[in-house]
Design a binder for these strands. Structure first.
Lengths: 227, 227
DNA sequence: ACCTGAACACCGTTCAAGT
DNA sequence: ACCTGAACACCGTTCAAGT
């Protein structure tokens, strides 16, 4: 009897990269709650304690997960376009990296400034806001908020947040819709009318695009040289 | 020997309200991680199982916490002003309710549509967006996002998220600042220049006010009748 | 250097029982 | 109706030990 998991053959030697890869897969497939040290160790065919050789504690593993996502952001080259277009492209790049991993995306919000790749993203955003004429302090506030806002866009998408299993998700969306439709139309006319759109997103791309439009328009509205 | 905790006297009979009140106090003082069933039961001088008489499980307790916060939102009366002003006042009311409880605020983001008071808030927002001329679907997306964005504003404030203990928080902020200042200015010029503002918020009220400005300007930028 | 084994101090929750 | 007590199946983590 080989001590290995179904069809996985010989166990490769552990390093941070394979642990992070497996952790990402677990979180994507079953959500962040399913990502426990013990579960991850079992998946990697190893003792829980083995992971502590590679990571000081669980938090350091989550840091590494966030770093992995930030590293997958493909920052656009500095373009010809104005700062607003470039800022939009930068936020779109972050969004593109987060969208495939909504469960893990939530981890990035608090880790931008403690991640190397996150700092590169922040530097880019601050540079564009500086170019736009924002002062240092205002740029810091706005830049920090924009990154957090993109994360929110991904994690707060209507119909998301019911876990990754599509069957479970669909059932939850239908239940949500039914609950909203059962409200008294006299008390909640707009909620009842919008039940479908509130419970689930009809067009993901349109939702995300509109979200970016809102954020960029918001920054332009704050813009010192606007009036 | 009375079975009661230090100076608390006779134990009052349990109900949902006193449990929620104590839970809020624990979360405010020590963060959401400290809020466990067992810890809460000990604080209430009761067996962990006693709580299961009042709440089906922990999630239902967290639902009740979110409901409590939504209920503390003082929605403004319908004003004379335009939809943008009213929408801003509505979001400001939510922000006012969340700001004293940043740890618990994170719970509200996924619970708006399953909370009575949250639905009242959503209804108000959707009504104003309707008045502004947004279609049902777009209003649902934008309205849902705005509420989530306010929560993000509260939980992502620079310097927040280091836990509630002021000493611990200050130490974390100083460490963060020092780390940012130690970066190579050649690689991260804007981050280094903005280290102070990124690590901590100089003026809370200004930050929150600017955040609302950004969101409202963003909605106005999406507005169908803008051009 | 890299991993195992046993143990500790926690969790949320079920189930039967008390008053 | 409201709460207790014992038990179960989990957590993250420390510490000493193996190779």
């Amino acid at each position: 009897m080989e001590r290995s998991r179904a069809g996985s053959g010989r166990r490769a030697r552990l390093d941070r990269e394979v642990v992070v890869g497996r952790a990402l897969a677990v979180a994507d497939a079953e959500g962040l709650d399913a990502l426990t040290i013990r579960r991850l160790a079992a998946d990697l065919d190893v003792t829980p304690m083995a992971l502590y050789w590679h990571f000081r504690d669980k938090d350091e593993l989550l840091d590494a997960l966030a770093e992995h996502l930030f590293r997958s952001v493909r920052l656009p080259d500095a373009q010809e376009g104005g700062w607003a277009e470039q800022l939009r492209a930068t936020l779109a790049a972050l969004m593109g990296a987060l969208r495939p991993h909504p469960a893990v995306a939530a981890l990035t919000r608090t880790r931008i400034l403690s991640s190397h790749a996150g700092l590169a993203l922040a530097e880019r955003a601050l540079g564009l806001l500086d170019e736009a004429g924002f002062g240092t302090e205002e740029a810091a506030e706005v830049g920090g908020y924009l990154v957090a806002a993109v994360v929110t866009l991904v994690t707060a998408e209507p119909g998301a947040g019911h876990g990754p299993d599509p069957e479970v998700r669909d059932a939850a969306v239908r239940a949500q819709r039914a609950t909203l439709l059962s409200l008294a139309p006299h008390d909640y006319p707009h909620v009842v009318a919008a039940a479908d759109a509130l419970a689930s997103c009809a067009d993901d791309d349109a939702y995300f695009s509109r979200g970016l439009d809102l954020l960029i328009a918001g920054v332009q509205g704050l813009h010192p040289g606007k009036g």
